[in-house]
Write a protein that binds this DNA or RNA. Structure first.
Lengths: 107, 107
DNA sequence: TTCGTTATTTCAATAAATCCGAACTATTGA
DNA sequence: TCAATAGTTCGGATTTATTGAAATAACGAA
């Protein structure tokens, strides 16, 4: 498998971003990446950021959607794929959206 | 058909709200209701707030999802069903979320 | 009250998207 | 070269969405 494709911010739509974030597993991933960014900031492997009981085929599909939506960026590091939040870019394009979602209390 | 059921704000989840807003037709409805609230503020009929080319059955399902998610409130007025945004309630529960989505520029 | 009109919902069938086990690919280290 | 680890892709089962057609609801007029 060749390197990952990430959309240019011009092609990132609110539709895709909201759609990507409208799933609890994907939000859990985004929360984990946001928390990581606040400390280490070097990114997390797929497994490290995903809910522990998620089947890996499903997990992989979730990451594919997050990448396609422009929410996360992936790079391969050895045997792992490391993801980071495209935090500043999303904040610039959709001000307030990520903070509002990340700061919301989930039941 | 008897009166509409609207969830108590305690039972409104971020999941359902994001899911409801992660659809362009439903966002168009929400935008129309937000714009209406800024002037008349008396609410809009289903047809008035929905994109003009939306099939009626589809429109009705979209409203059902918006109501179930706690995003809008419906009351019957004559032959029409009038919807309003549950703006203050959503703002109180998920601060910044609605503004961020409504102020985003859609492509 | 019965009929016609308008506005919306429900039903039911089709179409599309999602989930996930199994098989596959990529990378590294022994 | 082989085995182990981390993800991805494939394919079929299940779920969800879409929408035409029929049903329901409210009203006004005859």
């Amino acid at each position: 498998m060749q390197s990952f494709i990430h959309p240019d911010m011009r092609d990132v739509t609110l539709d895709a971003v909201l759609y990507a974030l409208a799933d609890p597993a994907r939000r859990a991933i985004v929360r984990a990446l946001a928390a990581d960014r606040a400390c280490e900031g070097k990114g997390l492997s797929c497994n490290a950021a995903a809910p522990p009981d998620l089947p890996k085929a499903t997990m992989s599909q979730h990451y594919a959607k997050l990448r396609a939506a422009g929410v996360v960026r992936a790079t391969r590091k050895g045997v792992s794929v490391i993801h980071t939040l495209r935090c500043d870019e999303i904040n610039a394009k959709f001000p307030g959206l990520l903070p509002a979602i990340l700061e919301a209390v989930e039941v």
